[in-house]
Write a protein that binds this DNA or RNA. Structure first.
Lengths: 105, 105
DNA sequence: ACGCTATATGAGCATTCACTCATATAGTCA
DNA sequence: TGACTATATGAGTGAATGCTCATATAGCGT
């Protein structure tokens, strides 16, 4: 079945729309990391991390390649960070507005 | 319970990460729309649409105000479109790369 | 071959999500 | 007031998600 444009956009956003996946992407930033390094750093269970990484790769957020036993990852495109940074700015502004509204009341 | 930074970012992305909600936001773009106009235009059941709109408002993607019987909506911030447009560009590029890879093989 | 390390995946579980139908609420107008 | 319109919400359902434990696979070094 053919995917609609909205479905394509939703897919990449859905891949990013999870706290642990955001932590993974931000931890990797410009460096190259392997699964084995991420698990202890982010305190994620190995199989859980592996599944999150798979989701990110399948959505095109990360690219991965094998290096012996390890699988390395890097962020596929700088624009991923633009999305995250914009989301951060919006979230921050939204929370601040809410606090303002509370203080006025 | 205190929300982590990653959770805040994930929330706004999760609000956007659904095909129907993307369609809603893109239909509204810069215009002001009411629930009653969106339902037939997007072919969404009224209660379903109402719930999607609630999610978008709660995440700060849309702002709403009452006007008589109607509830009107507009997109809260231009940067929402930056996120959507970037996601679109990334999705497009990713699909194209996949097709290339298939043709090489 | 063996053991060891890194990663992937099957199965099961609890939770959340998207949807629909029916009903409730709120505002308008005669 | 009552009829009508617009929106919200309770309840139920099936599907998807995130997690964990256990097991499988794959590549290394001895």
């Amino acid at each position: 079945m053919q995917k609609t444009p909205a479905e394509f956009k939703a897919e990449i956003l859905a891949a990013l729309a999870h706290p642990n996946r955001i932590r993974i992407v931000e931890y990797i930033r410009k460096d190259i990391r392997c699964n084995c390094e991420l698990a202890p750093a982010l305190e994620l269970e190995q199989s859980n991390l592996s599944r999150h990484l798979k989701i990110l790769v399948q959505a095109g957020v990360l690219v991965s390649w094998k290096d012996g036993l390890r699988v390395n990852f890097k962020v596929a495109d700088e624009r991923i960070f633009k999305i995250l940074d914009t989301a951060t700015a919006l979230a921050k502004q939204f929370v601040e507005k809410k606090i303002e509204a509370l203080q006025e009341a």
